[in-house]
Design a protein around this nucleic acid. Sequence first.
DNA 1: AACATAACAGTTTTT
DNA 2: CTGTTATGTT
Length: 702
Amino acid sequence: MNLNERQLEAVRYIGGPCLVIAGAGSGKTRVITSKIEYLLDTCGYPGYSVAAVTFTNKAAREMKERVFRSVSPEAAEGLIVTTFHSLGLRIIRSECSRIGLRSNFMLFDEHDKEILVRSVLGELQPSAGADDFSKEDVERILGFISSCKMDMVEPEDSQSRAEDGDGILCSKVYSRYASMMRSYGALDLDDLIYLPVIFFRSHPDELARWQRRLRYILVDEYQDTNSCQYELLKLLAGERQAFTVVGDDDQSIYSWRGARPENIDLLIRDFPDTRVIKLEQNYRSTGRILKCANALISANSHTFGKKLFSAADFGPKVNVFVTKDDERQADLLSSEILGSTYMHHSRWKDYAVLYRSSHLSRIIEKAFVRNRIPYRISGSVSFFDRSEVKDFLSYFRLILNHDDDNAFLRVVNTPRRDIGAATTEKLGIFARKHGMSMFDAAQSALFQKEVGANTFRALGEFCEFISGRTDQAEDDARGMAESLADDLGYGAYLSSSSKNEDIASIRMRNVEQLVSWLTEKLDGNPREHLEPQSFEASVHSLCTRDMLEHSSLGEDDEELDQVQLMTLHASKGLEFPYVYIIGMEEGVLPHQSAIDEGDVTEERRLCYVGITRAMRELNLMEVKTRRGAGRSMRRQGENDGDGKNRRGSPDDSKMTESRFIGELPSEDLDIHNETRPKTEDEKAAEAKNVSMLLKEFLQSGG
DNA sequence: AACATAACAGTTTTT
DNA sequence: CTGTTATGTT
């Protein structure tokens, strides 16, 4: 199966912990899939005794596909190939009674969490109004809570992290947040890892059961593990220490999410017997691209020095395109890709446009539409993040469980029922005081005097509506789900709230898709061996597993011939013949926040990831001016002499070239600067290109 | 007290 | 483009 010596060693070594330092393009996914195959076919491990863990759903899906292509379904029976979070969910699902969690627990998304934190804040500081806390405040607190969980810090111990008054508040909110979550029977994403660790630490017998089941564990993208995930790995691996982790410290780009690249060093300290195997032969890129990548990354410090080499051609120079602004950049990008497809007879999907932040794709998109270039943006809004989907999930949740205050808050006034913020505020206070749910509070006679008659009537009608659906769901969940949109007048609500009727119908389709998803669970699907499930179980799996695993929709049309637009983060693990990295400017590629923090090493790795995606050709693009970028570093009077620039001159900031371009060997760069008059040589080269294009075009019989 | 309308600003990366 | 904020209206 064509593995090189190092790769083979990594596959065959199962005697103890194994750390594979795998440079970009060195075939690490192949090592993992081959190793699974080896364990199953050659070593006779039963499928259910092996788990391969990745970080993204995409990677998990890809790996599953590859493994099932080469291993028989019987041998792979029970094999686990999922994300860390899904594995955690699986553990929690099977242990929930022992964890002390209701079996119908729900996953809270960002929005749910925000609502909860706001309510906790209101409780902790009754004097302050709900609006005293901005979105940033809430996000900062949520960030604190999240990083605590990722570092295995329990609420009681989180005060030590709090240096100032703000931290003390965070810690207090964390405590209350945790107990509220518990009483709701709700989990956040961090809990999916955190809870199993806590559970296993205090239940050695249950841990032993899992250890007996999982005889071998493989972890991809190990450099992205956070402390909590590493802890889970250590616990599951136990005495046997039978695991392989594959990672690349130079591709650690998720430290903002708690990832600890130091876990690579920690592993060697914790498991001194670890066999370390380095994969340095790159099978992806040209020699020149690797030379640039190596040059760039050498500016960072390393514990495991490694130098990628390639047997491929040295390849063409790296192009650097300098344009006046991003609109011009988008046009140039379009024409470059158009020209290149003619020149190389390549397909759209051979091209990738990568960028630091997602909003940079907008201008490119517009240009691609103008120029009829088919494209696909990955990492756009996920299905479960759409407001109409969340509305319906909340309806289902509330119909299932009247005590679900978050669901209540989300839908009590959607569609409009004349129940606003003031009323829900009062409801919250009243419910807390009497220790009841908001749903019950809304119907309580005592609450009647708190609000006006109209409002109370609206609340009553709402609760009655929900109760009616609950009754209906008892014997006809399918019918209830299918008529819910009509009964709510949701279509009319969508038409009035979306500007465009087309958008309204797209949203309605999303709702219909969600409903049909639910009904398929209710009815079961013999073709896919799905047993019919209760309403409760169906909603539960929609709000946990499906939410987690169907994160980004539209990734199924992967095989369409389209130019790929994505963030640098999303590009990790992928490869493309032709890569364009746009926005190569200070403040954009080393992102401003990183510059402010005084540490751009992760940004450099991000750039490294982008560069190493390229197989044949790499193009970098930078602009001279950008609107509203960076902090108001506006300098008047520095506009070019030709009078007024049409596009708001005073607010355009001058951009400087990304330092990362300067870190590349200049002899490997081919600079195309539109903002400078062209030299005769450049003109000649361009003319040559045009004539080549023409020739190609004529030859292709056009 | 809730809503409609307009005006506005600002967008790091994601399970 | 979308979610948030300020204003006037019912």
